[in-house]
């Protein structure tokens, strides 16, 4: 008797319990192709698995220790952070400025908006390939231009120089991604109510004050999303290191993802690559948590 009562209580007309069964296939796929491999990653990170031979040994924390000792880890984290900061600042500043300009009434606005967005449409491979010819020493676009205006173009060697290669590829990423950032800013700016701007003008604000005191606070959520998207893109950086510099010269453009790829597929050390992935995972989680806390706080303050 009591049992029956219980059963009755649990039947909901909106979402009966047995409907949970329908989540099982999706959940299963998710577990098999995502959760399980991720858990396995932790397991492999304490072995010396090479990807082929299944008779691997457990090596404890040796992989982690080597990574820190040989400096691969610090170098990659440093490069990735520099890259991410450049992308976030560059792409957001450029995107915001262009969005501001293209938000005022000018002739051919649609055309310019399209132009600014076109680079985002190309695949990274194409962009990387084209830009490696732009940066090519001696006879590339920039070098030829420098020669044309009377400067010494043969000295121009951005990707071949340890100090500049990372900035060189970051510039390409900015060129490709600022269009997307711009579109989001543009959408944000269009939500700003005209009457608020008018009120500001009546109160005697100049253009700069309007931007600083009215527009930016009103689009703060757009800024948040753009910054986070760019941070993610920066931390994931792989494409241009792979296509344009191959991590070089030396190890100056080895980013986190590129190093994982290199250890796993060139050095054939899946175990060590797993260890590296685990550490990257922790680093990225930490950065994300920090970003979320910081951004949420700021949004409320504004």
């Amino acid at each position: 008797m009591e049992k029956k009562k219980n059963n009755k209580k649990n039947i909901s007309l909106v979402f009966p319990n047995r409907m949970y069964l329908f989540a099982v296939p999706a959940l299963l796929l998710f577990c098999v192709f995502w959760v399980f491999p991720v858990l396995q990653l932790f397991y492999y990170s304490i072995t010396n698995f090479n990807g082929i031979n299944y008779q691997y040994d457990f090596v404890g924390f040796k992989n982690y220790i080597t990574l820190f000792r040989e400096g691969t880890m610090t170098n990659s984290i440093k490069n990735t952070l520099i890259y991410a900061v450049i992308i976030v600042i560059g792409s957001n500043l450029l995107g915001l400025c262009v969005a501001m300009v293209l938000n005022i009434k000018i002739r051919g606005k649609a055309f310019f908006r399209t132009c600014a967005y076109v680079p985002a449409l190309f695949s990274a491979i194409v962009v990387g390939f084209i830009w490696s010819y732009v940066y090519m020493p001696d006879s590339g676009l920039i070098a030829s231009f420098l020669t044309l205006i009377g400067l010494d173009g043969s000295k121009f060697n951005l990707l071949g120089n340890y100090k500049t290669a990372l900035y060189g590829i970051a510039a390409v990423e900015i060129w490709k991604s600022f269009g997307t950032t711009m579109i989001i800013y543009l959408a944000g700016l269009q939500t700003v109510d005209e009457s608020l701007l008018e009120a500001g003008r009546i109160d005697g604000c100049n253009e700069w004050q309007l931007i600083k005191k009215v527009k930016l606070p009103l689009i703060s959520s757009t800024i948040t999303i753009n910054v986070i998207l760019n941070v993610i893109a920066g931390l994931k950086a792989f494409d241009y290191s792979f296509i344009m510099t191959n991590g070089g010269p030396g190890k100056s453009t080895n980013t986190l993802m590129f190093t994982i790829y290199k250890i796993a597929f060139t050095d054939q050390m899946m175990g060590k690559a797993s260890a590296f992935s685990v550490v990257s995972f922790i680093v990225i989680i930490l950065i994300t948590i920090f970003m979320l806390i910081f951004m949420n706080k700021r949004e409320v303050e504004l």
Binding site: N161, Y162, G247, G248, P249, G250, T266, D267, Q268, M269
Partner: peptide, 22 residues
């Protein structure tokens, strides 16, 4: 050599010719 030795050589050699004091 086990794969990876030569990439280390290449990376270090490019440091040497890239003026990194290697």
């Amino acid at each position: 050599w086990p794969a990876g030795t030569e990439t280390e050589m290449e990376a270090l050699f490019s440091e040497a010719i890239g003026g990194q004091g290697t």
